[in-house]
């Protein structure tokens, strides 16, 4: 199967899955709006509109983080609760198609929220429209990395308590520890390089830069690119190492 065929399959399955979710429970589409909104509200009450553009840019990046981490629960549920992984394992379904179609499906349900926050972020940051493709590439990159890690982790879990524990670690590292909703410069100087250990830091920094909210130092950009290159390799390795089937 070539890459184009694989991509076609991923898109097809993701579309089917996402439309099924959206049809069955339209309220599901509200979640991606509400989670950043709650944070926005709290921050707005404390800091006024000073950090609004950062928060909105963070809400855009959050959509990829949310899809890429929540899919861990999906994979785990399919394996542990629904016991459907075996059905797919014993079929021509490829692990990459399975994993990325699920990740993309989750992202598709986040698209309305992503578009709304993107429009708001563009408005408040006064960024030109041509940054949009750059931001989309960064979001897709983050989605692919987190989906790969989620898939890998899901193939190792054996019980529901594992899912809860690892899910929390994912959310904590990908969403809270990474400077997504705030500039990296808000961190103490010694901690700033370490922030790039987390997968969302690089794409978040470049997104903030694309919106014109931050003028990062050269070393920050270099570290962001290096971190993303490393995570691209990690994502590939994670997909290969995932214990989809023994054979």
């Amino acid at each position: 199967m070539d890459a184009a065929d694989r991509l076609k399959r991923i898109t097809r399955v993701a579309w089917l899955d996402a439309t099924s979710i959206a049809k069955t429970n339209p309220l599901f589409l509200l979640g991606p709006f509400l989670i950043p909104l709650s944070l926005l509200l709290v921050m707005f009450l404390y800091t006024g509109d000073r950090n609004l553009a950062f928060l909105l840019a963070g809400a855009v990046v959050f959509q990829a983080i949310n899809a890429g981490t929540i899919v861990f629960s999906d994979f785990s549920a399919q394996k542990i609760y629904f016991k459907l992984q075996d059905l797919y394992c014993a079929s021509p379904a490829r692990p990459s198609v399975y994993a990325y179609s699920k990740g993309l499906s989750r992202f598709l349900t986040n698209v309305p929220a992503a578009l709304a926050y993107l429009a708001l972020a563009l408005y408040y940051s006064h960024a030109p429209l041509y940054v949009v493709p750059v931001i989309i590439v960064l979001l897709v990159f983050l989605l692919v990395v987190l989906t790969s890690l989620s898939f890998f982790a899901s193939t190792l879990v054996s019980g529901e308590t594992d899912v809860f524990m690892i899910g929390n670690i994912f959310t904590f590292t990908a969403f809270l520890l990474s400077p997504v909703y705030y500039p990296i410069t808000a961190l103490p100087a010694f901690a700033q390089p370490y922030a790039f250990l987390f997968p969302a830091t690089g794409p978040a920094l470049l997104t903030q830069w694309a919106f014109g909210l931050l003028a990062p130092a050269a070393w920050m950009v270099q570290l962001a690119l290096l971190s993303m290159a490393c995570y691209a390799v990690v994502a590939y390795a994670a997909l290969r190492a995932a214990r989809w089937r023994e054979n």
Binding site: R12, V13, L16, S20, N25, F82, L84, Y88, S91, P92
Partner: peptide
């Protein structure tokens, strides 16, 4: 093709969507 032991269907989807999703994963067109 395999029907695994203890497998459960995904509750939120319709019967048609459930089967269609499986087939799409196997590589069939929409």
């Amino acid at each position: 093709s395999l029907v695994p032991q203890d497998a459960r269907v995904i509750k939120s989807s319709s019967a048609l969507e459930f089967v269609q999703l499986y087939l799409a994963l196997c590589g069939h067109s929409l």
